[in-house]
Amino acid sequence: MEVIKIVGTDDTPSVTFDAANEIFEVSGRSLPEDVAAFYEPILEWLERYSEEAIAKTVFNFKLVYFNTASSKMLLDILLKLEEMYESGKDVLVRWHFPEDDEDMEEAGEEYADIVEVPFEQISYPMD
């Protein structure tokens, strides 16, 4: 499959989807001007990937900020991963949050409640 490699900006996240190297990561800030346009290709890629998923898909979210419009698109990503998991694929979501950021930690807890997929919360120290 082709590799998705989007370099983040101050309002869009970095996205790396590289099935061959087993990297699936969304990180940084997400408040794009047009959320649907930004996330559509990402969701389409996941849809195609779900059919030929590798042995274990470890999906990393390492966001420092996202607006509510993005939160809906992040749920769509998670629902896609849930679908994969329910169809028998091995999937793990790792939700990384800055150790002092309770809101980002809580956002992870809320997603973990909503979707039925193995979910790990990981805090990391701020510089």
Partner: peptide, 11 residues
């Protein structure tokens, strides 16, 4: 909720 045509999520 669904994303509106204005890109809002009602959240």
């Amino acid at each position: 909720g669904r994303l509106s045509n204005k890109g809002g999520a009602g959240l």
